[in-house]
């Protein structure tokens, strides 16, 4: 007997060889998702975008955030961030058309993020107010390493793509074929592995800056 059969038989024996009613199982699983408000934290009252920013900049997430009115303002925002942190005027862009098509004059840009890049600029598909998370789906415009290699990560997200809870993101993608990777990124890379004390920049970015843009997303 294969290990597969052995395991499945042992599981069935452990469950008294009852008959599986797939429909009943599904109903029961769905019932466990009822009344979500009772089992998740509350969001502060007010606009979602404000809750999202409050969360992103809270000590728990410890990222920085700013708002811009139009995607065309992104290069200027990046420029300001570089100046503030005394970084060279050079950035690696996530290979997304939206980013490439902006006018970056005055800044040196590369269309790919490499192992030793200092600053990477990316775009997240969604933001989650509950946790201050940014959501990325791997695809030709979104290589996964671009989110992990740079030391400074600047991420744009559209205001209209901010959802309230983790569950709301799940509801948006339900039924879709999942990408190879879904990354939920919440703050910079950190570790507490040496004596429990928190240090940022463990393997991934040490700094995360979130730029929320007001116009509609091109998803």
């Amino acid at each position: 007997m294969s290990a597969r059969e052995t395991i499945l038989n042992a599981v069935r024996a452990g469950l008294d060889n009852r008959k599986v009613d797939a429909e009943a199982v599904r109903r029961e699983a769905d019932a466990l998702l009822q009344d979500l408000d009772a089992v998740r934290p509350e969001l502060p009252a007010g606009a979602l975008v404000d809750a999202f920013i409050a969360r992103v900049t809270s000590p728990k997430v410890a990222a920085t955030a700013e708002r811009i009115k139009d995607v065309n303002e992104l290069p200027a925002a990046v420029r300001r961030y570089l100046d503030l942190h005394k970084l060279p005027p050079s950035v690696a862009l996530q290979p997304a058309a939206v980013l490439k098509n902006l006018s970056w004059h005055g800044l040196e840009t590369r269309g790919e993020v490499a192992a030793d890049d200092i600053v990477g600029v990316g775009i997240a598909r969604w933001g989650i107010a509950e946790t201050g998370s940014l959501v990325f789906h791997s695809n030709p415009e979104t290589p996964i390493l671009a989110n992990f290699l740079p030391l400074y990560h600047i991420v744009m997200v559209h205001e209209s793509a901010i959802v309230a809870f983790l569950d709301d993101y799940a509801a948006v993608v339900v039924g879709q074929r999942p990408p190879r990777n879904v990354n939920l990124i919440t703050g910079a890379s950190g570790t507490t592995d040496i004596e429990g004390s928190l240090v940022l920049g463990a393997h991934g970015p040490a700094h995360l800056h979130v730029v929320i843009v007001k116009d509609t997303p091109e998803l």
Binding site: P178, L184, I185, T186
Partner: peptide, 14 residues
């Protein structure tokens, strides 16, 4: 409340 990175891995490169 969440870890910095939560990732869902689904199959090989698409």
């Amino acid at each position: 409340d969440v870890t910095q990175y939560t990732t869902f891995h689904c199959g090989p490169k698409q």
